[in-house]
């Protein structure tokens, strides 16, 4: 990251001795990839770039306050340039971090198994029929993360999932969500467990265990999510298609149940193994089995190899295979480069 101190605003504190320092940091990255999607679809080329302006200041008491905004050309949309950010402020001290604004709660605690990047994950064309995760896991709220000795406790409260930076707390028309997790090192193992609960009636719990084995890191996880089919459904919609004299034609989109027809539990079991071949090469594999209340189930296998070339550039090969109940199963492959500016 290029740390550009644009404004060392040495503001004398109220009582003289201490000063505050403001920093603006700029970081950016880009990626380009050739993607062979699952199914019979044409191969794709994809390019995306991102710039993030980080704003931070350290108060006289040592608290760091940070925010930021960014520019992006996403990898999921053709020419999808956008400006975003500015939706959170983070207050960090030695003991805790508090983020206020658009925060995300972990609604799938213990869910592991994915190791590929977005070029396959977002553009690979794979589409599972298994419903996982809440319908909405982010919104205006507070995220609190604190150290408890060597353990880390996280509590996220989304007060209004319909807004991001300005909204009513516990508004009747919107939903709130609470998520909590704790990560505890226990000898050779690290255990992470979490729960989440939403006003929608959805809830989840899960845990993962990690340990160093065979020169790499193995993570095994299990997640159970109680989901509500009404939250997955989309209502019928009507859009004006054409007007010919007095005749008006509408295009009708039928209501759907999404990936879930009945309320009930989804379970996700998975594991990942990541290891370094040398100082520049990383390999990772992951498996994940998922099943929902419709008895739809899938098995997913991921493999990823990336190698740093130096100077901020790297090349990668990502593969994902999905089998089972899926609108689109099969294998997707991406070969490309990621560059950190």
């Amino acid at each position: 990251m290029k740390k550009l101190t644009l404004a060392i605003s040495a503001i004398a504190a109220a009582f003289g001795a201490a000063t505050a320092q403001a920093d603006v940091s700029v970081s950016g990255s880009g990626s380009a990839a050739y993607i062979a999607p699952a199914g019979s679809g044409d191969s794709k080329l994809n390019v995306g770039q991102f710039v993030s302006f980080g704003l931070s200041t350290t108060t006289a008491s040592g608290m760091t306050v940070s925010g930021g905004m960014g520019l992006s050309n996403t990898i999921t949309t053709d020419a999808g340039q956008a400006v975003s950010g500015g939706q959170t402020l983070t207050f960090a001290t030695g003991g805790a971090t508090i983020t206020v604004g658009d925060v995300t709660g972990d609604d799938t605690p213990g869910s592991v198994g994915g190791v590929v990047g977005g070029q396959v994950g977002d553009n690979g064309g794979l589409n599972s029929d298994v419903a996982t995760g809440f319908v909405d896991d982010d919104g205006l709220g507070v995220a609190f993360s604190t150290a408890v000795g060597a353990s880390t406790l996280n509590i996220t409260y989304v007060a209004n999932d319909d807004t991001n930076t300005l909204g009513a707390i516990n508004a009747a028309a919107s939903n709130a969500m609470t998520a909590a997790s704790i990560t505890v090192p226990m000898g050779a193992y690290t255990i992470s467990a979490g729960i989440a609960d939403s006003d929608t009636g959805e809830s989840s719990s899960g845990a993962s265990v990690s340990t160093a084995i065979g020169g790499g890191t193995l993570v095994v996880g299990y997640s159970q999510q109680t989901l509500d089919t009404s939250e997955k459904s989309t209502a019928a919609s009507y859009a004006l298609s054409s007007t010919d004299g007095s005749n008006t034609t509408y295009t009708t989109t039928a209501a759907t149940n999404g990936d879930l027809d009945v309320d009930g539990d989804s379970t996700v079991m998975g594991a990942t193994y990541t290891m370094s071949l040398d100082a520049d090469t990383t390999i990772a594999v992951g498996i994940q089995n998922a099943k929902d209340a419709d008895s739809d189930s899938t098995s997913q296998f991921d493999a990823s190899v990336s190698r740093a070339l130096g100077g901020g550039a790297s090349v990668f090969l990502d593969i994902r295979n999905l089998s089972g109940d899926a609108t689109q199963d099969g294998s997707a492959v991406a070969v490309g480069t990621s560059v950190s500016f």
Binding site: S276, D278, A279, T281, T282, G312, S314, S340
Partner: peptide, 8 residues
């Protein structure tokens, strides 16, 4: 991207 560029 930074993690991949930096390597292990």
């Amino acid at each position: 991207d930074q993690v991949r560029a930096a390597g292990p």
